[in-house]
Design a binder for these strands. Structure first.
Lengths: 211, 211
DNA sequence: CGCCGCCTCTACCTTTGGATAGAGGCGGCC
DNA sequence: GGCCGCCTCTATCCAAAGGTAGAGGCGGCG
């Protein structure tokens, strides 16, 4: 006897990527692409209809809802399909919200087709597949929670990212310039950098500040 | 009598994207995908073999040569194929070097398949297709040259945004530190700011650099 | 209560970055 | 040929930022 096929929903705003996923996955036995969605909102609606086993979800859509938000909306329902993230980006700012939102797996678009198909089957079974770079990142995060900036440090760093000088930040927050320097110096140590621009760059990568 | 088909080379580091391009383009009459390349270096070698009419080139590869560099290398030869950029990014930092390098057209990956096929035919005929957002950007650039940073200025600013010091940027680009300062000073004037962090902030807002 | 983390501030010194004012080379354009 | 924009480089001066090494206040927690 044969297993029922795994039914897929492709959610990506790029027609080319959807076509690529379809081409790669439909040659696999036991996988069927049941639907496509060009926006995150569309994906949420379509996933709620109940005839999908695994959603392949991009994280960034041109506008509107993000992939992480859509993932949260989808997994919040009972009997929700599994959501497998398939995206180009692997910074903490992307991965953490997605995992938080209940994604079952996280793959990068440079993955070879075999890995993709394998990850889909793994996801359908409710188990997790992580891209190696994402796994590395998570492990590092567990090991060194040193990158935990305090509220005040982040507050200062955000103003730095907006291009303000220490003097201007001090005025804005009603501090002395020396205090601002103190906060920054501690941030630099925690982030392992030695300049304000480098701090902004790595804090952005880590998802500690937005932009 | 029938025209000879247009022979294509797909250069992109994502197997999924290559599959998508292939799926979309091979259903078009008169188009044939002759080869694929997963790195920019590979694309240069393959394009030199002489049996290609149009190269569809991504701009960012995981490592090594960039798409813009590969485009320059390809178009430098006599009887070179046309290069059509197909990428996700539309900031000045991406588009200007590519156009500079001799690309015949510039499309974004969210383009509908019909546009893609049309752009390929246009490129094969030696004429240009630009994605609307890219065209807008170029027009604005013509109109208000105030915020028109030069290539070199953007190049330096991107490294500043990555957190590098003037010294480090100088080493990276094989310049003196003084030259880096010159480029930055001019950028600051054009952007109306007076510090590197402020320059990064406003350049990001203006879409001159990514992140 | 005592410890600890966070926030605030001070002082001194070094390094980096920014402002200014040049100059020379090179390539494109009229 | 002459002009102009871009890129490169130099030199000096001043301001800003970073490194180091503190100290005191405050609130939470065991």
């Amino acid at each position: 006897m044969t297993e029922p096929p795994i039914r897929l929903l492709l959610a990506d705003d790029h027609p080319i990527v959807r076509a690529g996923l379809r081409a790669v996955l439909e040659t696999e036995p036991g996988l069927v692409v049941s639907a496509e969605a060009a926006t995150a909102e569309e994906a949420v609606v379509r996933a709620a209809e109940g005839d999908i086993d695994v959603v392949l979800m991009d994280l960034r859509f041109g506008s509107g809802m993000t992939g992480a938000e859509a993932t949260a909306a989808i997994t919040a329902r009972p009997d929700a399909p599994r959501v497998l993230i398939v995206t180009t980006y692997d910074t903490d700012a992307d991965t953490l919200p997605a995992i938080e939102a209940g994604a079952t797996g996280y793959l990068l678009k440079d993955a070879p087709p075999e890995d993709l198909a394998a990850a889909v089957r793994t996801a359908a079974a409710g188990r997790t597949t992580l891209a190696p770079t994402v796994a590395d990142r998570l492990m590092n995060r567990m090991r060194m929670p040193a990158t935990a900036l305090t509220l005040r440090e982040i507050e200062v760093l955000v103003l730095v990212a907006d291009g303000l000088s220490n003097r201007a930040i001090a005025d804005r927050l009603h501090l002395t310039e020396g205090t601002v320097k103190s906060h920054l110096a501690r941030s630099y140590t925690k982030l392992g950098v030695d300049s304000r621009t480098a701090a902004v760059a790595t804090a952005t990568d880590l998802g500690l500040i937005r932009r």
